[in-house]
């Protein structure tokens, strides 16, 4: 098992490098002086006054060299030492910027994905078991409808109904002004997490349904039925377990999509997380900050994929022997 996990991690590294290379080269193409985002502002102000020093610093930092591979590897070296550079907008180290927002985003993502799984998979199973029933059509139609509605529309409707009209929940932010306690945080979490959960649950329902139907129609389920097993047992023990593997895959695939949903959700609910930071960084064209965000999300997405792989290995021991080879 350990060797399997290690191999999965090793396979991910080139993909992560690929992501950062694409981002790095793209951002280098954007107009603006790269020096501004790579040097401690204290030093920079001093340099600006002296063009000769400025040129020397440029050379020292390798900005006279090709973007790839030279400049890229320099950046990579800094990253490995925990240095992501400075944000031009906040004039603070990017590690600090990201560090102060990552927990909020992780919280939102974990809770909403968890909720999506808890809602989406059972509904998918039900619709498959009751195929062609009114319930099936109803739930399926709802899922298609939700999958066709933009996140921001759902979020605005949710704010309108639950916050503005019913006064049940706050309209946004992580905390009430002046409070930092946990019940307050959870109170603020409910609305954005639910919206994101609903958005992510919709495709999950459709996938789970399709996957369950495939298994339900397979021969061994028919055999199990013909042996006289109780239907609940057939579905619970045999069908669902076998449908689980593709479902794990889908959950892993949902993660990049959920990140995208989180960007918009955070923006509407003024949720002080990475998504808001990304939009700000884009508006201010803050390249080092965007690079940091790409790196962190890339790591998160790949980590989620590895966890999904471990999930397969647990759900289906055959996977460990790597059937692809």
């Amino acid at each position: 098992m350990g060797a399997y996990i290690l191999r999965r991690i090793l396979i991910s590294i080139p993909v992560l490098l690929g992501i950062t290379i694409i981002g790095f080269v793209a951002l280098k193409l954007s107009p603006g002086d790269p020096l501004l985002t790579s040097v401690n502002p204290e030093v920079l102000a001093n340099l600006m006054a002296n063009p000769a020093l400025l040129e020397a610093e440029r050379r020292k930092l390798g900005f006279d060299q090709p973007v790839f591979p030279n400049q890229y590897f320099r950046w990579l070296g800094n990253v490995l030492q925990g240095d992501l550079g400075f944000s031009i907008t906040s004039r603070r180290p990017i590690v600090h910027e990201i560090g102060s927002r990552l927990p909020q985003t992780l919280l939102l993502m974990i809770v909403s994905l968890g909720m999506a799984i808890c809602i989406g998979i059972p509904i998918g199973v039900i619709t498959a078991v009751r195929q062609y029933s009114k319930l099936d059509y109803g739930l399926n139609a709802t899922a298609i409808f939700l999958a066709s509605t933009p996140v921001f529309v759902l979020a605005l409707i949710a704010i309108y109904v639950f916050a503005v009209n019913l006064h049940l929940l706050p309209t946004g932010q992580v905390h009430t002004v002046g409070r930092t306690d946990l019940p307050d945080l959870l109170h603020h979490l409910i609305l954005p997490a639910s919206v994101l959960a609903v958005v992510n649950a919709a495709p999950l329902v459709r996938y789970t349904r399709a996957s369950m139907l495939e298994v339900l129609n397979s021969e061994y389920v028919t055999t199990a039925r013909s042996k006289g097993l109780v239907e609940r047992r057939v579905i619970g023990r045999h069908a669902f377990r076998n449908a689980l593997i593709p479902i794990i895959t889908i959950v892993a695939l949902l993660i990049p999509e959920a990140v995208a949903g989180a960007v918009i959700t955070e923006q509407i609910f003024a949720w002080n997380g990475m998504g808001q930071l990304a939009v700000k960084a884009a508006g201010a064209r803050d390249p080092s900050l965007m690079m940091g965000i790409i790196l962190i999300t890339g790591v998160a997405v790949l980590a989620a994929n590895i966890i999904a792989d471990i999930g397969y290995a647990v759900a289906d021991p055959r996977v460990r022997y790597d059937p692809a080879k």
Partner: peptide, 28 residues
């Protein structure tokens, strides 16, 4: 907060284990 969120999740999942969509959407 993160701990509690995970705990919240686990309770949510428990309620969703019964195959009633109403029950599972309640915490949402």
């Amino acid at each position: 907060a993160v701990l509690a969120a995970i705990a919240l999740l686990s309770t949510a999942c428990q309620s969703a284990a019964s195959p009633s969509p109403q029950a599972s959407s309640a915490p949402a």
